[in-house]
Write a protein that binds this DNA or RNA. Structure first.
Lengths: 188, 188
DNA sequence: TATTGTTATACTCTATAACTATA
DNA sequence: TATAGTTATAGAGTATAACAATA
């Protein structure tokens, strides 16, 4: 939060650049010998091209997901909750008494990280952790009344976020997208 | 890489849990008073439900993107390159002489992070950084011959990754997806 | 004064390994 | 021996602020 001291700043100027700070890769070519080619340098003031990326569906997916998370995060910020925390609340709500490992597997996240996440939710009084009477290795998770109430207030925000996505890409594309991506919901 | 010492391990058992290590949230309720409800605890051996998440397109998008990145990362691991590094190589290839700020804006990543990323690519001899003769604040970036060659070898791997996505969701859904997501390519 | 690129810093995720208690 | 949960740790990625050089 409080920056102590700042960098010293370097610029493209005359002095040669060092390699990356990690120096995990060697640098072979001496810099000066080939620094004399900017004659054909076009400063790219014209619209930039994405190159192969524009043909790669994975890249479109990534951009779309970033947009959605930014939008959704904006909605969630009023509740001081992250998308990941929201997803865990949803799963506990839909499966009262679920244990942590089952959540981790369903959401494809790591046990270790999930433990800390649930720590946080429990600390905020949204989730109740109970030792299972049947198998004492398990925690058994429930939403508290406060957790249920919060989820109820978040639900409209989540729906609103989805609506903005639909507005951005159009209702037809939205329906197609939902159908095309449904595969990723019903498996590991 | 080398773990010094490991955790001490805790279990759901009898002793009360502490709050999260950060303790940024208080814990109000005493644990023992409400630990007596596991009578109706169903250990959730039945298939779990995603709850609201299954209706949230943003979640499907996230899962799809994770799948694609895992797949693509597997392809790229042979070249010791990350998806982010690959995207920068693509942009430099498509726009020789581009500067770093333009790349950062096009890909929606931060200048600071991009600097280190380019450091790494330059250290590996894939990218050449030249001070612009026109505006000495600029770096002017080109692929080296080695960078061009590497990109040429990666291209089929990227195409293969896309093909696997098409195989997973089906060719029709693939085409719909491409159309539905094209919006996210042509803007900031 | 604004812009490009840098460094430093902090925070969040993620991934892995080791450990305890339980089964 | 295997499993649920934990801790410690390291590595990425991200975000921000301050700085030098240049415009």
């Amino acid at each position: 939060m409080e920056p102590k001291k700042a960098g010293v700043g370097k610029r493209p100027g005359d002095r040669p650049r060092r390699a990356g700070r990690a120096a995990k890769s060697s640098r072979q070519q001496p810099r000066a010998t080939q620094a004399d080619k900017p004659a054909r340098a076009k400063p790219a003031a014209s619209p930039l091209a994405l190159g192969d990326l524009s043909q790669l569906l994975g890249y479109s997916l990534r951009r779309a997901q970033l947009w959605v998370f930014r939008e959704f995060g904006r909605q969630l910020s009023a509740f001081d909750i992250s998308p990941a925390q929201f997803s865990v609340l949803c799963v506990i709500d839909a499966n009262p008494g679920v244990n942590q490992l089952a959540i981790a597997q369903l959401l494809s996240i790591e046990r270790a990280g999930l433990g800390r996440l649930v720590d946080h939710l429990e600390g905020r009084g949204l989730v109740r952790r109970t030792a299972s009477a049947i198998n004492r290795r398990y925690y058994v998770l429930y939403l508290t009344d406060e957790g249920t109430a919060l989820l109820g207030r978040i639900r409209p925000a989540a729906a609103e976020s989805d609506k903005r996505l639909a507005a951005k890409i159009g209702p037809h594309a939205y329906r197609e997208l939902r159908r095309a991506l449904s595969v990723f919901l019903q498996e590991t």
